[in-house]
Amino acid sequence: MVRAMATRTTSTSGGLDRPNEPSVLILTSLASGDKHGYALTQDITKFAGVTLGPGTLYGAIARLEERGLIAPTPSDDRRQPYRITSSGRAALVAALQQMRQLADEGTMRLGLRVAKSQLARRPSVVWWAR
């Protein structure tokens, strides 16, 4: 599903294209461990099907670092690795919850069934049925 949503590129779709935001993709990638630029692009391509251009990637890295959402980790190599900070983790959680709410809302409005048993445990988990 992430892959399908990530391939959307139009900005007219409001929040639907939010998973495609470089910041969200980078934070998601760093959530599983520290990575440098190349490792980030490889990982993002793998899990989201999106290839970030070098300019876009470093522009996003600079913004995230400015906001304290990621931080560089000590390294002697010029390949500078980055780690997600606690603020970054919190921001990612908030962004993912927003996406999940949107997905749930869209699912409901499309008339697709939501598993009640699952809803009771995790309100935002849905399953798809034709």
């Binding site: 440098h36 630029g37 190349y38 070098p54 990637l57 470093y58 600079a62 010029r78 390949r79 500078q80």
Partner: peptide
């Protein structure tokens, strides 16, 4: 910006 991110970006270009 170049002083801070330039080496990393250059390495990314080389790796890619």
């Amino acid at each position: 910006w170049r002083a801070k991110y330039g080496p990393g970006l250059a390495a990314l270009l080389e790796d890619t």
